[in-house]
Write a protein that binds this DNA or RNA. Sequence first.
DNA 1: TCAAAAGTGTTGACTTTACACCCATGA
DNA 2: TCATGGGTGTAAAGTCAACACTTTTGA
Lengths: 245, 245
Amino acid sequence: MDNNLKLKTAEIEKISHLEYFNIAISVDCVIFCYNEKSLQVLLIKSDLEEYSGLYSLLGDLVKPDEDLDSAPYRVLKQRTGMDDVYLEQVHTFGSIGRHVSGRVITTAYYSLIDIKHHKLKLDENELHWHPVKNIKKLAFDHKIILDTCLQRLREQVMEFPIAFNLLPEKFSLRQLQELYEAILGIELDRRNFRKKIALKGWLHDLDEMETDVSHRPGKLYSLDPVHKKRKVIKKSKQPLVTILT
Amino acid sequence: MDNNLKLKTAEIEKISHLEYFNIAISVDCVIFCYNEKSLQVLLIKSDLEEYSGLYSLLGDLVKPDEDLDSAPYRVLKQRTGMDDVYLEQVHTFGSIGRHVSGRVITTAYYSLIDIKHHKLKLDENELHWHPVKNIKKLAFDHKIILDTCLQRLREQVMEFPIAFNLLPEKFSLRQLQELYEAILGIELDRRNFRKKIALKGWLHDLDEMETDVSHRPGKLYSLDPVHKKRKVIKKSKQPLVTILT
DNA sequence: TCAAAAGTGTTGACTTTACACCCATGA
DNA sequence: TCATGGGTGTAAAGTCAACACTTTTGA
């Protein structure tokens, strides 16, 4: 007991010394899924006294021997059992006071996963899916991080074929449209949506129909294999040339 | 189990994280200027043996008591004597092997400055402006950082009134067009460019004319005061609504 | 036969592109 | 008077937004 206390004090001394010279770096993951027609995000009960009762994003400190971009994959693998997920770096947050337990700079990523594929045991881990719409407050600056990632997702989703990561392998155009509506937070015209998606050439017609629906079944599609890359490769100039003259 | 026991305090959490406080974090600045009809970037001779002969971006370690976003302002102030510059965070680079002298994760910013305003003493500091077009190789991963920042600049420049930071207070439409051509790396149609810019409503007509030109002088403009904000405030949904239906 | 969603085209408004001529100035 | 760039308009093409009816299926 005595020893423990002494050690702790020494450690804390050391920490406050370190604190002055060192900065920790973490990653935080905004893990999106699409379930019951709503865009949801995976949160964990904060284990810090200071934020008791609040939820926070999944994150971890970056290990000295791992790439920054590998850290969120590790976090996802640990928490959901999934690898081969879509991940995108969004922004790095580094205000002095953003973390209660010291100076931590965090790089935010968002991830898109198909809820059917993950293997999390929600109750055990105090992990829960929360509809993005309902989230008012999170621990740390995680609400701002969430908002930033959502905004980026909205920007990307029309330009690149990434939303499909949130859907099962086979899906109908209606499902796809509802997904887009959930992400963008707006309603879309069905005819215009179908035209626009057809124009993108992202879809592969499976020649199958929905089953188990109590109405006329729709056709099923999958993401065209050509567009199945994990990492977005940005067209460098193409879109810019068309912007102006 | 007692609730208090389950919750970690911030102090305790620090201890468990001690081992991780050994990654350094830096910022690197891609400082753009516009001179002699070309987009240029401020580079410094690398003082590392490993990169002898190569140039690198301006950067520095983030101090424990400064916000991440403040660090690039400090670097710019130190190097150019300018504050009140346009700065935008772009991406964070954190591969294990990216820095020869240890584990350094770096957040990249780009900055737009009017070359006429800076106070650098180029020769003393081994600081030099380099046309972006000519840059083939830089120290560390700085070429990739430069490319990433240039791409982001190209994406932003049509959407937000930021290019004006590269021009003097008063400028002609020709100057502005040449600047855009330098940034985008493409030629633009004069009439369409003028229409497009007029439509944006970014310009304030100064009712003055160019002087010292050996041809018909053009009108001078300045950035409309309404748009003179340092930080870009993103319209959240406006552009997205128009994307689809 | 009803309810629910699938599937499909057109029109008008707007935006974008391509393109050519006269004008003002200084050399 | 020439060279240089300033300044401007229009027509055709393409894109976007709004909008309604018929079809298929299961209940």
